[in-house]
């Protein structure tokens, strides 16, 4: 919208420039008033336009509570993760321990437009809505991330969803895949999983797995023959983990 307004301003400037350069002969043209209004005074700096988005999240899993969901609005220079690249420290903390604070802070430090975090985990089958609003920017992308808490380091989310083209009232949907942060071996052992299935350790700075982000291979569980696993059949999952509905609200 900023660009549009600037464009309109430029057009009016161009017209007034033409007018000042006109001979009186041309003043009888229908589209040129005989007594053109004086060139408009420079438009006052417009009030910043606020845009708002509401992200409605549904947890599609059978038995994986989702850690407090983070939503960040940012420009095209930022991203939450890249398949094949190591997780950021913030993403590692999110994916191993369900704590999105560093993940969000890293975005803020890099100049994100706005962010919001749910206050509590979102249980299986649950739906919640998170809203954010900010002064209008060109090229708005959204990143959404959360941990599947009954895992070692699985997270679900989308990064760089372009919402720039949404008009007020329009929405789009995304199904969020499940990724493996690649920072902790998927041992499923007691003491390694922070969710209610275990109550074990969340974040550990040591990186002991592949150390790159990939699609998650799924959990095994003791129901599938892994006797030492603290996870049972209820914790198994398949893609995707979340349904996201993103609506531009203002």
């Amino acid at each position: 919208m900023k660009r549009l307004k600037l464009g309109a301003l430029l057009v009016s400037l161009t017209i007034s420039a033409l007018l000042t350069g006109c001979d009186s002969d041309n003043n009888n043209r229908a589209d040129v008033p005989d007594n053109p209004a004086p060139a408009p005074a420079p438009a006052p700096e417009p009030e910043p336009v606020t845009v708002g988005f509401e992200v409605t999240v549904t947890n599609l899993t059978h038995g994986q509570p989702l850690s407090p969901v983070a939503v960040v609005a940012h420009d095209g220079t930022l991203r939450g993760w890249t398949v094949g690249q190591p997780s950021s420290n913030g993403l590692e903390l999110l994916a191993e321990g369900g704590d999105n604070s560093e993940f969000v802070m890293a975005f803020e430090d890099a100049g994100s437009f706005a962010s919001v975090s749910a206050e509590a985990p979102l249980g299986p089958g649950g739906t919640e809505s998170l809203s954010l609003s900010f002064a209008e920017e060109e090229g708005v992308l959204l990143t959404v991330a959360t941990m599947l808490v009954n895992t070692n380091d699985a997270f679900s989310g989308v990064t760089r969803v372009d919402v720039s083209t949404l008009a007020v009232g329009e929405s789009l949907q995304r199904l969020a895949p499940i990724y493996d942060a690649g920072t902790e071996f998927n041992s499923e052992l007691a003491g390694t999983i922070p969710g209610p299935a275990d109550g074990g350790e969340g974040f550990n700075a040591e990186r002991e797995d592949m150390n790159f982000v990939a699609r998650h291979p799924g959990i095994v569980s003791r129901a599938d023959g892994y006797a030492e696993s603290v996870l049972d059949q209820s914790h198994r999952f398949d893609q995707p983990a979340m349904l996201l509905s993103i609506t531009r609200t203002e």
Binding site: V83, S187, R215, H216, P217, V220, G225, Q239
Partner: peptide
Amino acid sequence: DARVHRWLNPVAK
């Protein structure tokens, strides 16, 4: 290894 060599679709982009 059941913890390593499984996958969930899709496998390629």
